[in-house]
Simulated assay, not measured.
Amino acid sequence: MKNKNKGRDSFIAKMRSPYERVFSQTNHRTRYRGVAKNQFAMFMESLAFNLKRMVILNEEYGF
């Protein structure tokens, strides 16, 4: 029974891996007091992450 869904599990793992990497790198603690400041900080972190990712993808695939 261990290998029953091995193909399905590997397919799901390939689909989840790029997104899990994003969420594993985020800090779960907040730096500021107040919702607006924390939302802005998370927005800026996400923006920086996506810009770094865009540069890597641009070099890799030549978009």
Rank of each mutant, 00 (worst) to 15 (best):
M42N: 10
F43K: 15
M42I: 14
I12A: 13
N27Q: 11
V35C: 04
M42L: 10
A48I: 14
G62C: 11
N58S: 05
F49M: 05
T26C: 12
F49I: 06
S24F: 03
E20P: 08
M54N: 13
R8F: 13
N58L: 12
F23G: 00
E60A: 10
N27G: 02
A13P: 02
F23R: 02
N27I: 13
K37V: 01
A41Y: 13
H28W: 02
N38K: 00
V22D: 07
F63V: 01
R53H: 08
K14S: 00
L57H: 12
K52Q: 06
G34A: 00
A48R: 15
K14A: 01
L47M: 08
E20L: 12
Y32C: 00
F11R: 08
Q25F: 04
V22E: 13
R8W: 05
F49S: 00
A41P: 13
K2C: 14
Y61C: 04
K37N: 02
E45S: 10
F23M: 11
Y32P: 00
M42F: 03
I56G: 04
S10K: 14
G34C: 01
E20F: 07
V35M: 14
M54I: 03
M15N: 09
E45G: 11
P18L: 01
V22R: 04
S24L: 07
Y32H: 03
N58W: 12
F43C: 10
L47A: 06
K14L: 13
A36C: 09
E20D: 04
M54W: 14
V22K: 01
E59M: 13
F23T: 01
E60T: 06
I12G: 07
R31A: 02
R8M: 10
K14E: 03
N5R: 12
S46A: 14
S24E: 12
V22C: 02
A41V: 07
N27M: 13
R8K: 08
K2S: 06
I12F: 15
Q25L: 12
F40K: 15
S17A: 10
M15C: 14
D9L: 06
K37M: 03
L51P: 10
N50D: 07
A13K: 15
F23L: 09
L57P: 04
M44F: 12
S10W: 13
G34T: 00
N3I: 03
E20Y: 04
N38A: 00
N38Y: 00
G62R: 14
R16K: 15
H28R: 06
S10F: 12
T30A: 06
R33E: 02
E60R: 15
S46I: 14
R29H: 14
K14H: 12
S10P: 05
A48L: 11
Y32F: 05
G62S: 12
N3A: 09
L57Y: 03
